[in-house]
């Protein structure tokens, strides 16, 4: 999922300082799972903003809506009828949703309510960690299902480096060395010989280095 966290209220307040009516739009997908921008978080933020405005002696009308997704036209269409009644929109979706909403409703100011962090997993309740950087050329088959692009600080394709100590990374003693994890799992799988095979130089043009990416599937168009 895409992991995000709520922006500080003060920052959000700054976006809507001159507004009287605000549409607060949540998203039922990833940001709901990581407790950043689902229905519940929309309710909490609406309450917090209303009180913060009241405290300053001003009134703010907040309309709460939570869409199934903000990265698809059909769900964003659901707010078309009401959006013009509001001075601005705060989207609690990831950066993708915020942008798509802004793209679709060109004349309405749209502000982000969360900081989008990474693509990751729920390691345990309340703990999320990065697992994928969307490099566009998956090498997990060669690395025992553990991604060195997202989990090694240096993104080494043939590791570990000299900074790996007792299975931990030199940048943070609590961070597992991705290459240690890879070697441990290869051993477990009885495929340690895979480690001897060098991974060739990666074509980074499929990653962000090649500019914004796009996927077209003609069979689905």
């Amino acid at each position: 999922m895409i992991v995000a966290e709520r922006k500080p209220i003060e920052e959000i307040m700054g976006f809507i300082r001159d507004c009287k009516r605000v549409l607060l739009v949540g998203c039922n997908e990833c940001v709901t799972v990581c407790y950043a921008g689902g229905k519940k978080e929309v309710e909490i933020l609406a309450s917090a903003l209303t009180m913060a405005f009241m405290k300053e002696g001003r009134e703010l009308e907040v309309k709460e809506v939570t869409l199934e997704r903000q990265c698809d036209h059909e769900y964003l269409e659901e707010i078309r009828k009401i959006i013009d009644e509001y001075d601005a929109v705060i989207s609690l979706a990831c950066g993708v949703g915020v942008q798509f909403l802004a793209e679709k409703y060109f004349r309405t100011p749209v502000f982000p309510g969360v900081n989008t962090l990474f693509m990751g997993v729920t390691e345990e309740r309340g703990v999320w960690a990065e697992r994928c950087q969307g490099c566009g050329q998956c090498i997990l088959s060669q690395t025992a299902g553990i991604c060195p692009v997202s989990r090694c600080a240096k993104r080494l394709l043939n590791g570990p480096c000299g900074g790996s100590t007792r299975g931990k990374c030199e940048i943070n003693p609590e961070l597992d060395c991705a290459w240690q994890l890879i070697i441990d799992r290869l051993k477990e799988l009885g495929r340690l010989e895979d480690y001897e095979t060098l991974i060739p130089i990666k074509d980074w043009s499929t990653e962000r280095a090649g500019g914004p990416r796009k996927l077209v599937r003609e069979d689905l168009q």
């Binding site: 903003l49 009180m51 405290k55």
Partner: peptide
């Protein structure tokens, strides 16, 4: 912490 943030 939320109440602190909004000045309540």
């Amino acid at each position: 912490s939320l109440l602190d943030e909004i000045g309540i």
